[in-house]
Nucleic acid binder design. Structure first.
Lengths: 214, 214
DNA sequence: CGCCTTATTGAACGATCGTACAACAATCAT
DNA sequence: ATGATTGTTGTACGATCGTTCAATAAGGCG
């Protein structure tokens, strides 16, 4: 597997201004993680090498080893960063919704299919992370924790919406699976169905889960 | 060199008997694809190199280039092979079900969470394939076709089960997404919920899609 | 200013990657 | 048997991989 052609040089995200030659450690870490995001979006999971990321960040390859124990740790932290960004976007969507339990729930799932969450450029980050889950127990644990957090947030919204406590776990698993499946297919072949259709399908499912009439 | 080192190391799947030195071309192709499956299951997407696959198949690395245009083509054909195996297992489950539309439909989704489909060892094949979808248009086309085939089969079962023609497309997309999401999470963290739970969740969803009460 | 800490460099290392290719060997037609 | 065909080998090549590490440079502090 070799790096794919990246000729078009499509501007996925503008590169931020270069950091001072000697930067604040936290800022440098962050800039490396954001560079990894851009490389993953542009070149895919197979193209996200130490050298490519360092070049994207405008630093020497050796610096990666100074901030991360290895490329896998950088990928894992990039996943954490993207996951936090997704969580923030979802929380913002919920907060912006009318203060009705059902509306908040619908805002949660609808936001999953709109920018900045559902963009094919983010898929490579998940793929790169998933490919580490099987072989690295620590990565598997991280995945479990972040997914558990996602489901816990969803369980809270479902509880507000009146889902019985006994059904909460299965309902959260079901909604999570449906949203993830729609999200994945939306990223893999965006022309198969639209974000609006995905949102409509998911909201309709919420109607059956909450048992209530719309 | 390392010709003597053919002792069984880790038996994920038993390696089939070695082919004769000069094998039937179709058989050799097939053996390379099956070797790729075993390597993907054992070493993950990042470990599925030409050399590892050739060694697993008991042939020289150069032979891969004789049967496939490159490692990406071998991965793509491996995906095709696994997809065909899944399709066969699903069709067999449907055929073995009672000849009632709803039972056939339930058999279809239930089989998605039992061997030989839902095993974490298969996840690496999907991951390796997905990582090629973004960068290679031909792979993207192949993905679209195989997913369309899956949904078409599901649409047929849903039609038999009485789903209105106007709802068929969205229903198939929804069931596919739910099953895929459950399947993915089941492979990524098998301890989070069980295959039986996944089946129960999916069957319950079918009840709401078909409109009928269970 | 000189000293100390440390962020950063850039090259080098060994390993592995995918692919190409000449040589070898096995089968088949004649 | 002989030649043609082709499956198969093994190696070599250039590229790239992740990581290491001595050298360098940039600030903080006396």
């Amino acid at each position: 597997m070799q790096a794919a052609d990246t000729r078009p040089k499509r501007a996925t995200q503008p590169r931020p201004a270069a950091l001072p030659r000697r930067a604040e450690p936290d800022a440098r870490r962050q800039s490396l993680i954001e560079a990894a995001m851009r490389v993953l979006a542009r070149a895919g999971a197979n193209g996200a090498s130490v050298r490519a990321i360092a070049q994207e960040a405008g630093v020497s390859p050796g610096l990666v080893g100074h901030y991360f124990t290895g490329i896998d740790a950088l990928i894992a932290e990039t996943y954490t960063h993207v996951d936090a960004m997704v969580t923030r976007a979802l929380d913002a969507a919920v907060a912006a919704a009318p203060p009705l339990p059902r509306a908040r729930l619908e805002a949660f799932v609808t936001a999953s299919f709109t920018a900045p969450i559902a963009q094919p450029a983010l898929l490579a980050t998940w793929i790169a992370f998933w490919s580490l889950v099987t072989s690295q127990p620590q990565i598997a644990r991280q995945h479990d924790e972040q997914y558990a957090g996602y489901r816990a947030r969803l369980e809270g919204l479902l509880r507000e919406a009146g889902v019985a406590e006994a059904d909460l776990r299965h309902a959260a698993i079901a909604v999570t699976a449906l949203v993830d499946g729609l999200w994945l297919e939306l990223c893999l072949s965006p022309q198969c169905f639209s974000s609006e259709e995905a949102g409509a399908i998911a909201r309709r499912f919420l109607g059956t889960v909450c048992g209530g009439v719309a």
